[in-house]
């Protein structure tokens, strides 16, 4: 019976249905999250939501202007650390044939992607917050920058390796130095892919909360100073979400809507950039 062909076909059919079910099961939370974020966040959205500062506890209204600016500044800081760092390590791995050391660096880079971001936050806390004597935007930017490095490194390495050897040889045969070859020929050819990697890394750190808890810390007021605590969108969402005030909870959903939109747009644009020339 168990080995009869009709039964085997039935089993095959059943497993196929189960697989389809798995896909549906994964999509339910995604659509639920997107729907609820939109439905509950939309009422909070208004021009003042983007342009006003948070109101003191107990008062309704107010906005997330400081958190938006803070997140912008933190992303800028993080990128100015993570992008050059990752680019250079990626170039080293892809272009300088580093042998044993390369394997170690590559492996460690992969392992680093798995380090919980809250641990990175603790590290930066004891490295910068303790030594500088307080929470600061700078510390937050450094924490996010460290988180960006492995992603940027890996996409740089992969994309550089996809550039055909014939281009490198053409450039070297023209009498270009290796440095000129890398900077003028190989890197430009790999740029769309690397850009995608960078945008995905930015999308990831834009939503990071845990590493900011004790570095950037959050700020209810307008501040763009590097040596002061700074507000950030995800921090604001967290604070508002666990607060007992209905108005703040609505604002948490509103801020989540903004954050999710930002992150999704970054993700979609990143993929468009990469697929633009058919790769």
């Amino acid at each position: 019976m168990l080995h009869s062909y009709p039964f085997r076909k039935l089993l095959n059919r059943a497993v196929t249905v189960l697989m389809l079910l798995a896909v549906v099961l994964a999509l339910i939370p995604l659509f639920s999250i997107l729907w609820h974020t939109f439905e509950r966040g939309w009422p909070a959205i208004s021009p003042t939501f983007f342009t006003h500062l948070p109101k003191p506890v107990g008062e309704t209204g107010g906005g997330i202007a400081n958190a938006l600016a803070g997140t912008g500044l933190l992303i800028l800081l993080a990128s100015s650390i993570g992008v050059p760092f990752g680019l250079l390590v990626g170039i080293y791995l892809a272009e300088f044939n580093p042998g044993g050391l390369g394997t170690v660096v590559r492996f460690l880079n992969d392992v680093l992607t798995g380090i919980p971001s809250i641990v990175t936050g603790m590290f930066v806390y004891s490295l910068l917050v303790l030594t500088m004597g307080g929470f600061s935007a700078l510390a937050g930017g450094v924490a996010l920058g460290l988180i960006m490095i492995p992603t940027v490194t890996r996409s740089t390495e992969e994309m550089l390796k996809m550039v055909p050897t014939s281009l490198r040889e053409a450039s070297l045969a023209l009498g270009a130095t290796k440095t000129q070859t890398i900077l003028r020929v190989v890197l430009p050819a790999a740029i769309p892919g690397i850009l995608t990697g960078i945008m995905l890394a930015v999308a990831r750190v834009a939503g990071e909360t845990a590493p900011l808890l004790f570095t950037a810390f959050g700020n209810r007021f307008w501040s763009l100073r590097l040596d002061q605590p700074i507000a950030a969108l995800p921090l604001q969402i967290f604070t508002y979400a666990i607060s007992p005030y209905r108005d703040w909870q609505t604002q948490a959903w509103g801020a989540a809507l903004v954050l999710v939109t930002l992150v999704l747009v970054l993700n979609i644009v990143a993929r468009l950039v990469f697929h633009r020339d058919g790769r």
């Binding site: 994964a26 609820h36 834009a206 939503g207 909360t209 967290f238 959903w253 989540a256 954050l259």
Partner: peptide
Amino acid sequence: LLAAIPSVVYGLWGLF
């Protein structure tokens, strides 16, 4: 995309 959604938004959704 499930991986792109920030953790804090998951938390918000989880809570409410």
